[in-house]
Amino acid sequence: MRIGNDNPFAQSHLLSGTEKRGNVQLPDYTDFHLNTKTAPAMSDDKYRAAIIEQAKKDQEAGKFQSESAGFRSLVKSYVSVVSPDRKNMISEGLRAIYKNNNPEPKTFNLLDYLLGTVKYNKEGNDLSYAEFYDSNGEMVATYSNSGWTSFGTKEENARESELWGIYNNAWNSAARESRGKQGAADSIYISG
């Protein structure tokens, strides 16, 4: 599940993948709801053009936002550019948790200074809960026995909102244009 910390757009979705570390099934980083840092696939101008083109295609096909695989792919690519490196944070965090024999966390200098912090609860080698924070102090992921939850950072949420604005405006323009063409076709048919 990906949840924005101050975002009213919460998604309920299990993000567990197939790999394990200890008793923890690692998240599926390819899932639409879980972003991790990636290099930009194109410039912001090209992203904008791709978003507008996708909106036009989706409107013509009668799809809107996440109903479209192309839209989901663009969102993931566009937002991941500003995402924290969740994959590395989680991997290093779990490695540190399993190295620590204490059921409650001590401060991990590596995580505090490079990756953020981890808070967790475990008994022996069974991890039941963990929180992962980036270096800005924003919670970016949690693990509980039921799976993973991803939290959007302020930067990710802003970039996703920007994409939605571009897409929605383009989709609405395409819908108005389509209705205009339909109205013109209807008037030609009526007058003919």
Rank of each mutant, 00 (worst) to 15 (best):
I3H: 04
N5C: 02
N5T: 09
D6G: 11
A10Q: 12
S12E: 07
S16K: 09
T18S: 15
K20A: 03
L26R: 03
P27N: 08
Y29A: 01
F32Y: 13
F32M: 05
N35D: 10
T38C: 03
T38W: 02
A39I: 12
S43K: 10
R48Y: 12
A49I: 10
K56Q: 15
K57W: 13
G62H: 14
K63S: 09
E67V: 11
E67C: 11
A69V: 14
F71P: 10
S73F: 11
K76C: 08
Y78C: 07
S83D: 07
P84V: 14
P84E: 05
D85F: 08
K87E: 14
K87G: 07
N88F: 07
I90Y: 02
I90L: 07
I90F: 03
G93M: 00
L94T: 00
R95C: 01
K99D: 11
K99S: 11
N102D: 05
E104F: 14
E104S: 14
P105N: 12
P105V: 06
L110W: 09
L111D: 10
Y113K: 15
L114W: 04
L114G: 08
G116S: 09
V118S: 03
Y120S: 14
N125K: 13
D126K: 12
Y129N: 08
E131T: 01
D134I: 06
N136A: 07
E138P: 02
V140F: 02
A141M: 04
T142C: 03
G147Q: 01
G147Y: 00
F151M: 02
G152I: 03
G152W: 11
T153I: 02
R159T: 01
L163Y: 00
W164L: 12
G165K: 11
I166P: 04
N168G: 01
N168F: 02
W171A: 09
N172I: 12
E177R: 02
R179T: 07
K181V: 04
D186R: 14
Y189M: 13
I190N: 08
I190Y: 10
I190A: 05
G192T: 09
G192Q: 06
